[in-house]
Write a protein that binds this DNA or RNA. Structure first.
Length: 939
RNA sequence: GCCCAUGUGGCGGAAUUGGUAGACGCAGCAGACUCAAAAUCUGCCAUUCGCAAGGGUGUGAAGGUUCGAUUCCUUUCGUGGGCACCA
């Protein structure tokens, strides 16, 4: 009987489905374990071999935990709202709901072929009204909450209103500032609009006019992390700033808790570092400078108050509110000209020409409060309006940007760090002893920081201040295919829908193009937009809305009365293991952490970090073949216009290249592309004509060029994709699963190589032959295993268990191979050994394990078998084959009993002929004997 | 520029409280079985000197600590990823 994997896999997949073996209950006496994959966006391209890497890893771990006696939740679903489906709709007129449905069906059938143990009854789709009803509901919770700075947590906005009504909002110390502070009486006297405006400034989901990243080509607003180097991540279109009313999440309120929470979770160091970077906490001080001849004060933010005596000029952002007020009459013309120039520059130009130094003197001077020095105030675009106070004190001897600015405009530089400053460049050290620094003279800079702040606070001219680089997250998109906001606008007031009005379903539209004045497509449906209660919000939520809480819905997916029953979330609690790519380091992972914290604060769930442990799978790269042609066009202008085949890349600061890629069917193993194959390509792809203006080589028979090779992320446009379906068809799902694991560590990126899969397939066939002979049929027996055979078994149990626990699946696969090779060598076909090995294999190759399990005469599914226990007694050895080194180099081997002491070992070793030869009659200096490891003779 | 990873045969990779470098697999070479093929099996496979026995070199590079270093320390180079006027 031969190994007919296609039949076997089909048979058991059907059987498992019929028996609902993967159905998970929320009621169980077993301990729980929650394994989660980052759910996919169901793109039209389907799965390629890179996708399942993480899914296979999580599947192995889930099945392992199940065998170990856990009640394992291992669900799957689809992040089915998003731009690509809408882009596709724009191009083809197909409704996103239809394409999404089709794509999900493809994904599911592909996933099922690989044999994953998902409980599909718990599937979630973010674009399903039964799901997004609760996304909208959670949005309302965010809208109806504020962040209490005293308790450091979210509280219902009703509590804030009560506080305003009874106590107002008054400062703890000092005079109330009009517009910011008010008494209870004043509050009551405010109009509804005024009250709502004040409340809006505290809500966790709030709306305001803000500068947003507006992308003309996509007709929408993009989040900061969707903008890369001033162009959109998708499509590379230019992005500019535009003022629009937008929704935001007040994630900045949670900056500190997001930072602290990182200490309690198992994420990789680099992942934590990325998040810390993104949050960008910095400690410093804000201080006010008196402006000469003006009653206004200039407030700056600095992390280095110790350098206060090195301030040679001030720089404020061009957008700063004081600019007009402080500009002198003589400088007004220059300043206006500069402001005009700044306004004319797009975000992209500013970023691209970051090194160009520009600026303009305002004619005003600030006064250094400590030595009375007059400090000129400049404006420059290198100071950002959105960070700190939008103004800095420039210390050219300590900051390279300030230094460059001073040199460019010939501003004299004060040196406060002695020899540490060379005059050639700035030195940002904190280790120097301060000079020319008044009361700070003689202090080490890092000690002076605290002393300077104390002094500033004492004089009442400033305070300690923490700043964050992170901004509040933009939460609206001028798009169709997303969750509609449960908000109605009336008289400038945002009125939330009641929970009973949810879901607010996405209405059908005929056209997917943008609405008027930058609004989304929904604005075109007047009968939907205009309601008796007011006008509906026409933007939709961003892609990350649905994915910020999906892990909770899996726990209680069919609940019609709440997003997730508290009993269910208390039972399943945190995700124990989360597997996914690093690309979500600062997007999805931060947002879902924030949502979890809000839900926790509001008492809706019992934990405030969603993911206890995160494992990042690496990328499987495919090999691309390409050649480059230098083009003269400006990269930026052509980037968006590249056709499907040729893409533009920059291989040096000056060279813009057009890269032509080819699938491997046109290229031989050495990377050779012949002129004939190029012609063939061009005739098969009439829309993607490749230039034939090439310097051909000739080998006497035909023209050819050698293409460059590169391992790149798999993508249809790069012609380097392999499809898991084909491989499952050809080798079986078990082989495919084990091979993906065998490629290397889960976390590592590695190139895909289809050839290697043969080896894993051979191994499974060899396993099969331990049970069945192609000609003779059954060969397994009921005989008692020998000690040697048990040793092989228990060594394997130990190794597989250890490796699986630490996610070292590649070495586990190799341990299986070693085990089967060893059993073959000793011709072991004994049921007692073989069936234990089958159980070990269930997580890795469930189909073949189940089939052989039944061939051995077992009843019931192997999926619920008991994991074998390792018996250390079987592995105890009485002797050890020691390597004997002379001066650290191994020269011989010697088998010795383990219970010998140092003295006995020395005697035996010195008798050894190889040792004698190396000693050349002399006495050894020293003999090092490490029990059960090695022996080293020092000559 | 800053931060975080990472560097081992032709290839993917193994080896951790410092103790036999190259497990396992791919590719390659030689052979067995076969009319033949597939499948399977056996042997070789870092490099260099040598018929062999045996020796030299070798984990990006250079130093250091140690009886002993892929592993620890210092310097340096390459690759990948992240951040980047954040004061």
């Amino acid at each position: 009987m031969e190994y007919r994997f296609n039949e076997i896999e089909k048979k058991w997949q059907d059987q498992w489905k019929a028996d609902k073996v993967y159905q998970v209950s929320n009621e169980s006496a077993k301990p729980k374990y929650y394994v989660l994959d980052m759910f996919p966006y169901p793109s039209g391209a389907g799965l390629h071999v890179g996708h399942p890497l993480g899914y296979i890893a999580s599947d192995i771990y889930s099945r392992y935990k199940r065998l170990k006696g856990f009640n394992v939740l291992h669900p799957m679903g689809f992040d089915s709202f998003g731009l690509p489906a809408e882009q596709y709709a724009l191009e083809t007129g197909q409704h996103p709901a239809e394409t999404t449905k089709k794509n999900i069906a493809t994904f599911k059938s592909q996933l099922d072929k690989i044999g994953f143990c998902y409980d599909w009854e718990r599937e979630v789709q973010t674009s399903d009204p039964n799901y997004y009803q609760w996304t909208q509901w959670i949005f309302l919770q965010l809208f109806n909450s504020y962040f209490c700075n005293t308790e450091k947590k979210a509280l219902p906005i009703s509590q804030l209103i009560k506080k305003y009504e009874t106590k107002g909002a008054l400062p703890k110390t000092g005079e109330p500032i009009p517009g910011k502070h008010f008494t209870a009486e004043e509050w009551k006297a405010y109009s509804k609009q005024q009250q709502e405006e004040i409340l809006m400034n505290r809500r966790l989901a709030f709306s305001k006019y803000g500068e947003v990243n507006w992308c003309e080509a996509l007709g929408t607003v993009l989040a900061n992390d969707e903008v890369v180097n001033g162009v959109s991540e998708r499509g590379g279109h230019p992005v500019e700033k535009k003022k629009m009313r937008q929704w935001y999440l007040r994630i900045t309120a949670y900056a500190d808790r997001l930072l602290e929470g990182l200490e309690t979770v198992e994420f990789s160091e680099s992942m934590k570092e990325m998040q810390r970077n993104w949050i960008g906490k910095s400690q410093g001080a804000e201080m006010d400078f008196v402006i000469k001849g003006n009653d206004k004060k200039l407030r700056v933010y600095t992390t280095r108050p110790d350098t206060i005596f090195g301030v040679d000029f001030m720089v404020v952002a061009p957008e700063h509110e004081l600019v007009a007020a402080i500009t002198s009459a003589e400088q007004k013309e220059d300043i206006d000209k500069y402001l005009q120039y700044v306004k004319s520059r797009s975000e992209r130009e500013r970023l691209a020409e970051a090194k160009t130094i520009t600026g303009c003197f305002t004619g005003a001077y600030a006064i250094n409060p400590f030595d009375g020095k007059e400090i000129p105030i400049w404006i420059s675009e290198y100071v950002l309006a959105g960070y700190g106070t939008g103004a800095i004190m420039a210390v050219p001897c300590g900051d390279q940007r300030d230094f460059a600015f001073a040199k460019h405009f010939n501003i004299p530089i004060t040196n406060i760090i002695g020899d540490h400053y060379t005059g050639e460049e700035a030195n940002a050290t904190k280790e120097a002893i301060l000079q020319n620094s008044g009361f700070l003279n003689g202090l080490l800079m890092k000690d002076a920081i605290g002393i300077a702040v104390d002094k500033i606070e004492e004089l009442g001219i400033g305070t300690r201040k923490v700043n964050y680089r992170m901004r509040d997250a933009g939460f609206s998109r001028q798009r169709y295919w997303g969750e509609p906001f449960p908000i109605i606008w009336r008289d400038g007031i945002a009125i939330p829908l009641g929970a009973e009005e949810l879901p607010l379903e996405l209405p059908h539209v005929d056209k997917y193009g943008p609405g008027p004045e930058g609004e989304g497509p929904l604005a075109n449906i007047t009968e939907w937009v205009n309601t008796p209660a007011g006008r509906r919000e026409t933007s939709t939520m961003p892609g990350y809305a649905g994915s910020s809480w999906y892990f909770l819905r899996y726990m209680d997916p069919h609940n019609g009365s709440t997003f997730c029953d508290r009993k269910a979330s208390d039972y399943w609690n945190q995700v124990d293991l989360y597997i996914g790519g690093t690309e979500h380091a600062v997007g999805h992972l931060l947002y879902s952490r924030m949502w979890t914290k809000v839900l926790f604060d509001l008492g809706l769930i019992g934990f405030d970090e969603p993911f206890r442990k995160l494992v990042n799978q690496g990328m499987i790269t495919g090999k691309s073949y390409f050649f480059n042609v230098v083009v003269t066009d400006d990269l930026a202008d052509r980037k968006g216009g590249a056709n499907k085949l040729g893409s533009f890349v920059k291989d040096s600061p000056s060279n813009v290249l057009r890269r032509f890629r080819f699938g491997h069917q046109y290229v031989d193993a050495t990377g050779k592309l012949t002129e004939n194959n190029l012609r063939k390509y061009n005739s098969e792809h009439p829309n993607d004509q490749v230039t034939d203006d090439i310097d051909w080589l000739n080998n006497g028979e035909e023209n050819y060029i050698i293409l460059k090779e590169e391992s790149e992320k798999m993508s249809k446009t790069k012609f380097n994709v392999d499809n898991p379906d084909d491989l499952c068809e050809k080798y079986g799902a078990d082989t495919f699963r084990m091979y993906e694991m065998f490629l290397g560590p889960v976390e590592a990126s590695k190139p895909w190589d289809t050839k290697g899969i043969e080896g894993v397939h051979r191994f499974l066939r060899k396993l099969w032959r331990l049970f069945n002979d192609d000609l003779k049929g059954r060969v397994w027996t009921d005989e008692k295993p020998t000690d040697a055979e048990l040793k092989i078994l228990h060594r394997t149990i130990k190794k597989i268990e250890e490796d699986t626990e630490k996610f070292s699946f590649n070495t586990a696969v190799s341990a299986f191979m070693i085990c089967i090779n060893d059993l073959f060598d000793v011709k072991c076909h004994k049921k007692e050994v073989l069936e234990k090995i089958l159980i070990l294999m269930v997580p890795y190759a469930p189909h073949i394990a189940e089939e052989l399990w039944h061939q051995l005469g077992n009843e019931g599914s192997i999926l619920d078998a008991t994991y074998p226990t390792f018996n250390p007694a079987l592995l105890v050895e009485s002797t050890k084959e020691y390597p004997i080194s002379i001066n650290g180099k191994v020269r011989a081997n010697l088998s010795l009993a383990l219970d010998l002491d140092q003295k006995q070992v020395e005697e035996i070793v010195l008798q050894h002929e190889v040792v004698q030869k190396w000693l050349e009659g002399k006495d050894p200096k020293k003999i090092i004997y490490v029990k059960n490891k090695m022996i080293n003779v020092v000559v």
